[in-house]
Design a protein around this nucleic acid. Structure first.
Lengths: 244, 244
DNA sequence: TCTAAATGTCTATTGATATAGACAACCATA
DNA sequence: TATGGTTGTCTATATCAATAGACATTTAGA
């Protein structure tokens, strides 16, 4: 916990920095012995801030459902989670975190058709302007949103994927029905940024939160690209694992 | 550029959010045609904020050396970069970024000896309490700091690594001199968090910035772990690439 | 050389952020 | 049931963040 000091006058409010730090400590298991966050007065002393500032931070965490304050007793930890998401040739959302939670689900938020931009064409190794199907999906683990993704598929092969996906709730199963029995991850690019408005809504994040962004290309067994996707993960809920 | 709205009353000041957004746009090449950021009045209109707020954001970017305002002309873009850092079995700092910049360098910030904690012992597959050498290093590309890393090595095999590293400036070369002709990346874990005080200083970041955190284990050709490291990268300067 | 367009500076006002102190309400337990 | 430790609420004050408007200064170009 201790460690680094809090930054003042930087455009990021103290209560938000503190909320992030305390959330991380909770996820790290620092308070597992008691199951509670230290008393407000103790935290205030530790971080060298006023008790009211600590209260603002804890209120934010309570809003996220991570802690619950009980008058007279203390502030209880309600939930701690950080899922491990493996990245390999056989990366799939449901399989990857399936053994860490009771239920994984993926729901279709929106779908549409569009022509391939220069960037999309480069990634999918097709010509600019080629018709593509776009899917916007939300990945959930135990009813908690974990990732939101936008995926593009060549329309000639996968024109029906919105309907098939809506019924199966799985890219893997949709591919199978559409004649792609298996597929592999070709390349993944990982960056991080602040959550945007869509992240806040879909992933139920608080402003200022961090999202891990993974851009990926999947290909069929003939090494023909079948999917390009940009997925955004709540950084405090997942970590990526690259096995070599 | 356009896209998502700015979040108000969230603990993150508008000028900081705007600075992050504009920095991203610059890195994305949105203003390459003119080499300048749009006029303050235009940005203010676009984002729906006061011109003074835009000026605060641009002042922060000027402080980072990314833009330079010239009275009467506009705000010029001084620098834009986001290095691609490949992660594979043969991940090495200098080789990975070497073809993207003129010069890569790695300097030793500090070194010391310590006993293996339970966590370190688990990662390196040794007994708790085993003596370890700790190295704190800073990776640079074209004289710009890119990453800061803390690495641990078993002291029995690599007791001299601080001196060897200091002279060679390379983990790979240090390993060679100490009887490890080659090594491979076993596993990498990637998370993201806000920059802490050390990040701000060493990586020359502005508060509220995001760092990508990579935990990695390297092993020699007999698959014996030789290094465990935690590296922190400035998220707006790098992206990770996982080739499968 | 005049003008339009851009950044620089100043004053003023409002709301959010943070500190400080005091006390009430509640819980567990000795 | 009395007490210590904890969260909840209230008032007050100072500073930061954001808006608003006016005008100065500099540059490029007609």
């Amino acid at each position: 916990m201790a460690g680094h000091k809090i930054q003042r006058q930087t455009g990021v409010a103290l209560w938000r920095q503190l909320a992030d730090r305390i959330r991380t400590s909770i996820n790290h298991g620092d308070f597992d012995e008691t199951g509670m966050v230290p008393p407000e007065t103790v935290l205030a002393l530790q971080f060298g801030v006023n008790r009211h500032t600590i209260r603002s931070a804890l209120a934010a965490l309570a809003q996220e459902g991570i802690v619950r304050a009980v008058q007279g007793r203390g502030t209880l930890i309600e939930r701690k989670e950080r899922l491990s998401f493996p990245i390999s040739r056989r990366t799939r959302f449901s399989q990857g975190i399936g053994d860490q939670v009771r239920e994984t689900r993926s729901v279709l938020l929106a779908s549409g058709e569009e022509a391939a931009s220069a960037e999309l064409a480069r990634q999918l190794k097709i010509r600019t302007g080629t018709p593509l199907i776009r899917l916007e999906t939300l990945g959930q683990a135990d009813h908690r949103p974990v990732s939101r993704a936008t995926s593009w598929f060549p329309a000639d092969r996968f024109g029906d994927i919105p309907e098939v996906y809506r019924t199966t709730g799985s890219i893997t199963k949709a591919f199978k029905e559409l004649g792609v029995p298996d597929y592999v991850r070709v390349v993944t690019e990982i960056t991080a940024t602040h959550a945007d408005e869509g992240d806040l809504a879909d992933l139920q994040l608080s402003p200022g939160a961090i999202v891990l962004v993974a851009q990926a290309v999947n290909a069929d067994l003939d090494n023909v690209p079948v999917q390009y996707s940009i997925s955004r993960f709540a950084a405090d809920r997942v970590r990526f694992t690259v096995e070599n």
